[in-house]
Design a protein around this nucleic acid. Structure first.
Lengths: 368, 368
DNA sequence: CCGCTGATTGCATACGTATGCAATAAGAAT
DNA sequence: ATTCTTATTGCATACGTATGCAATCAGCGG
C-alpha cells in the first residue's frame, strides 16, 4: 500500500499517565498495547461481534490499564445513531414536570439513551433551540408540555427524527403523543363533584393554547351539562401560580361564589387553596371544594390534601420510550396517539360523595 | 493520486427531497450544488474563517435550499470539543433543584453549551452513570447536589474534564465548587431567631453526608453558642419530605418542644410547617417559628410564608458557567471554591425581631 | 510589465470507531 | 491426508467536518 500512514500521534508513555497532557486514550493505543488490531478492540466493545475469548481478555486488560473509554462521538458518526434523545421541558416550577422529567430520564436511561435537555421558555417559540438540537443528530425528540410548530414537525419528519409529545397533543399529523385521559378524567371530576352535592362549579383554565387545558375543560363542561348542572364559571390561570391566585380571587369575590373549583392542573389548584384559605378563610371540603389534575407532589402534603385526577408519570414515560423504540426500529411506522388512564385520588380538599370512594393500594380513589 | 475515491454516496435528487429516504444533507451535497469545495462550505459555517462574500452567498443559498444542518457530531470529532456539558442532578422532588436546573440550563445555553442530563438517584453511587457520560466526551461536568467519589474526580482530572460542584463541597481537591453561604446564612438564622426571642431552637439536618447540611448545622450551632443559647435539639430529615415530617413529629412531641425549628432546607421546612399546622394545630410565628434554607418556590406561597435564607439560583448558575469557561480556556487553572452570598427572606413563618427587618426590592430581608 | 502582498480557494488528511471483505487458523468430516 | 466449515483476525475504508498547506488570483507600488 502506497498510502502514507500518518505517524502514531500518541507517543509511548514514558511517564506516569497522570503527568502526561491529557490526550484521550484511543482504540489504537489499546490495540498496540494488547498486540492486536484496532478492529479487534472495536469488536471487543461491540456486543455480538466475533472475538476469541483470549483476545478479549488481552484487550480488556490493556483497556483497563490505559483507562480506555470508547469515544461515543466517533461511534455515532459511523453508526449514524447517537443514542441521544432530545428532551424539551417547560414549566419546571410546576412540580408535575420535574417528576415527568425524572421519570422520562430514568426510562430513557433504562433503554440505553442519554437525555439532551433543553428548557423551553413557556411563551417563546422553541423552534430555534430545537433546530440547534437537531444538529447534534439526536435519535429522537421528546417534547414535554411544549408545543410544536407544524413547520418544525415537518422538518423532523424529513430528517427522520421521530417526535413524541408528552402531555400535549397537536394538530400536525405524523407526531406521536402520550397524554393522560384529559376528557374522561375531567368528566370523572365533574361527576365526583356532583355526587358530592356541589351545585355551582367553577373552572380555572390553563393556557388556552394548550390541548390539555382545552380537553379538560371540554370533558368537565360536557359532563356538567350531561348531569343537568349549570355551566361552570370560568377564569384563566395560564398554568401560572400567580395568575391562578388572581383567578381564584375573582371567583371567590363573585356575588354568588362557586362551591367547587376544578383547576386544569394541580399547580393552579394549590394556588386556589392558598387563596381560599389564607385570604378568604375558607375551609377546604366545607364551604369550598377544590380539585386538581396531575396529582403532583404537594397535592399529597397534609396541609393541602388535594383531590386530584392522577396522571401516572412513570407509565407515561414508559409509553414514550416504547413508542420511540418502535419508531426507531421501523421508520415507516404510523404515529400513534396514546392515552394513559389515570384515577381520581380522593383527599380532603373536596367534600366526599356518599358512594364510590374505595381504597386501592393505600390510596383512596373514586369510581363514579 | 492513486488512492481510490469512493463514489459519491448521495445520488442526485431526482424527486422532491421529502420523498427521498431521509439521508441527511452533508456539506458535500451543499458544495456540489453551490459549485464549491466542501472546505468552502465548512468555512462558511465557521466564524472567522476566510471566505469571500459572493461564495458565502452561494453556499448559504444552497444550504438553505437543501435544508443543510452542520453535523455537530462530526465537528466534535475533529475539534475535540463537543460543546456539551454533562449535568447531574438529584432530588428533583425538592423544588429548589428544578429551579437550579432551569437556571443552569439557561446559563449554559447562553454560553453556547448543551446540557446532557442525568438524574442521579440520591443514595446510589453515580459513578457508573458519570463514567458513561464521559464517553460522550462532554467538555465539562456539573454536579448539582450530587457528591463525587474522589476516584472519579481523579478520572475526570486525567481526562481533562473540568468538574464543578453546585451546592456541594468535597474533600477531593482539584474540583471547583459553587455554594451558597451555608455557614454565614445559618449563623444569620440563629441570630434572627435569638433576636426574635426564641430560646429553644431545634435543627433538622439533611443528609449527614452532605456538606450543605453539615455546614449549615455548624454555622447554626456555632452562632447559638456564641449567643449563649442552649444547643439545638436535633433530628435528621435526610432532605426527604416524609422523613422530615417524622422528624418534626418527634420534635413537637418532646416534653419541652422547641419554640423554633431551623431546617437544613426549605423542602424539609415545608414538611415541618405541614406537621405543625395540620397535626399539632400550631400557628406559625406564634407558638412555633420555622425557618428554612434555599427560598425555594413554595416558600413564598401564602399558606406557608416561609422565612428562609435565600440561595440566589441564577447568580450561582452564572458563576458555574464562568468557572467552566475559565477551566476550558486555561486547563491548568486552579480549582476554586466560590461562595455566593444570600439573604434572609423574612415572611410570616417566624416571629419577627424588633429590629433589623428591611425592605429591599419588594422583599423583606433581615440584617442582624 | 514585474514582483509582492494578502485574500480565497481547493486538496488532502485527520478525528476515532465500525464493518465488509478476504485471509488465515483451527477443527470436522470424509 | 484432504477437503470443507466455521471462527477469528487484520486491512482498508467510511462516517461528516475542520484545517494546514500550497496554489491561484486580484490588486498595487515601482
Amino acid at each position: 500500500m502506497s498510502k502514507p500512514r500518518a505517524p502514531d500521534i500518541n507517543p509511548p508513555r514514558l511517564v506516569s499517565p497522570r503527568l502526561v497532557s491529557a490526550r484521550p486514550v484511543t482504540a489504537h493505543d489499546v490495540a498496540r498495547l494488547a498486540g492486536v488490531s484496532q478492529s479487534a478492540v472495536s469488536r471487543c466493545f461491540t456486543p455480538g461481534a466475533s472475538i476469541a475469548a483470549e483476545t478479549r481478555r488481552r484487550v480488556e486488560e490493556a483497556a483497563a490499564r490505559l483507562g480506555y473509554r470508547p469515544n461515543l462521538i466517533a461511534r455515532s458518526l459511523i453508526t449514524r445513531r447517537s443514542t441521544i434523545v432530545g428532551v424539551a421541558v417547560a414549566y419546571l416550577e410546576n412540580p408535575f414536570y420535574p417528576a415527568v422529567l425524572e421519570a422520562l430520564s430514568n426510562a430513557l436511561e433504562g433503554a440505553g439513551y442519554r437525555v439532551l435537555l433543553f428548557t423551553a421558555r413557556p411563551g417563546e417559540n422553541a423552534d430555534p433551540i430545537l433546530e440547534e438540537v437537531l444538529r447534534y443528530r439526536v435519535d429522537a425528540l421528546v417534547l414535554a408540555s411544549a408545543s410544536l410548530s407544524s413547520h418544525f414537525a415537518e422538518e423532523c419528519r424529513q430528517a427522520g427524527v421521530p417526535v413524541v409529545l408528552l402531555n400535549r397533543r397537536t394538530e400536525s399529523g405524523g407526531v406521536s403523543t402520550v397524554t393522560g385521559d384529559n376528557r374522561a378524567g375531567a368528566g370523572t371530576v365533574a361527576r365526583f363533584l356532583a355526587a358530592g352535592g356541589h351545585r355551582r362549579c367553577a373552572f380555572i383554565a390553563g393556557l388556552e393554547s394548550a390541548s390539555t387545558s382545552r380537553e379538560r375543560e371540554a370533558g368537565f363542561s360536557g359532563a356538567l351539562a350531561a348531569l343537568g348542572l349549570p355551566p361552570a364559571a370560568r377564569e384563566v390561570g395560564h398554568y401560572d401560580f400567580t395568575a391562578a391566585l388572581e383567578a381564584t380571587r375573582r371567583l371567590l369575590a363573585l356575588p354568588l361564589p362557586p362551591d367547587a373549583i376544578f383547576c386544569a392542573n394541580d399547580h393552579m389548584a394549590l394556588a386556589a387553596i392558598n387563596v381560599a384559605r389564607a385570604e378568604f378563610g375558607l375551609e377546604m371540603g366545607q364551604a369550598l371544594s377544590v380539585v386538581g389534575f396531575d396529582d403532583a407532589g404537594p397535592a399529597a402534603w397534609p396541609l393541602f390534601g388535594l383531590t386530584s385526577y392522577a396522571q401516572p408519570v412513570r407509565p407515561m414515560a414508559e409509553r414514550v420510550v416504547a413508542i420511540l423504540r418502535r419508531h426507531l426500529e421501523e421508520p415507516e411506522a404510523e404515529a400513534v396517539q396514546e392515552v394513559v388512564p389515570g384515577a381520581l385520588m380522593v383527599r380532603a380538599s373536596a367534600r366526599l360523595p356518599a358512594e364510590g370512594v374505595m381504597e386501592q393500594g393505600g390510596r383512596r380513589i373514586w369510581r363514579g
